[in-house]
Amino acid sequence: MQEESDETIAILVQNDDSEAFGFLIERYEEKIKRYGRKFLNTKEDIEDIVQEVFIKAYTYIQSFDANQRFSPWIYRIAHNEFVNELRKKTRQPLGFFDPDTILPFVISSETTDGPIEQAELKKMMEEFLAELDEKYREPLVLFFYEELSYQDISEVLHIPVTTVGVRINRGKVKLKDLYTKKAV
């Protein structure tokens, strides 16, 4: 079972093998927790929500299309749960149409950053991520920490692939600005 793909295990769960679901939890629990820590600070909240994510994943597993990748699907559930929790806590209104999702953008390939620049960016993210807008924070986390592709991030956030690129690029610029301001 350890060598099986997420999608294969998901098919087993769909065929009523609930024990197989345990393997999916093992594979994603830490990732989802790490993802959640970028939204929420309280450990208890994160534990509860991660549990809720897996309960929802099991409940809705029959809606998963095994021809697609499993990771964007489960991150989508996690995204919804964390965003709902965040909105409850901060009483943020629901965003409807974001201007970034309206217009088409031309974006460069996924990343032209070298390993050193990526390491620097991760360092900046550790320090300044909380100061970024949620709309920049999330794609950055999914891209740099969870190592999802633009396409997968588009599936998780339900936004155009070009918007993912724009938000990641803008997020990086904002991070660098914050870093420079602090250095000055």
């Binding site: 609930s18 939890i25 991660v50 549990q51 897996f54 099991y58 409940t59 809705y60 029959q62």
Partner: peptide
């Protein structure tokens, strides 16, 4: 998390749609 979710599934508290 894993044990808690699997227990809930076994006890029928969580059902697959």
């Amino acid at each position: 998390v894993k044990d808690s979710v699997l227990n809930k599934i076994k006890q029928g508290e969580v059902a697959m749609r």
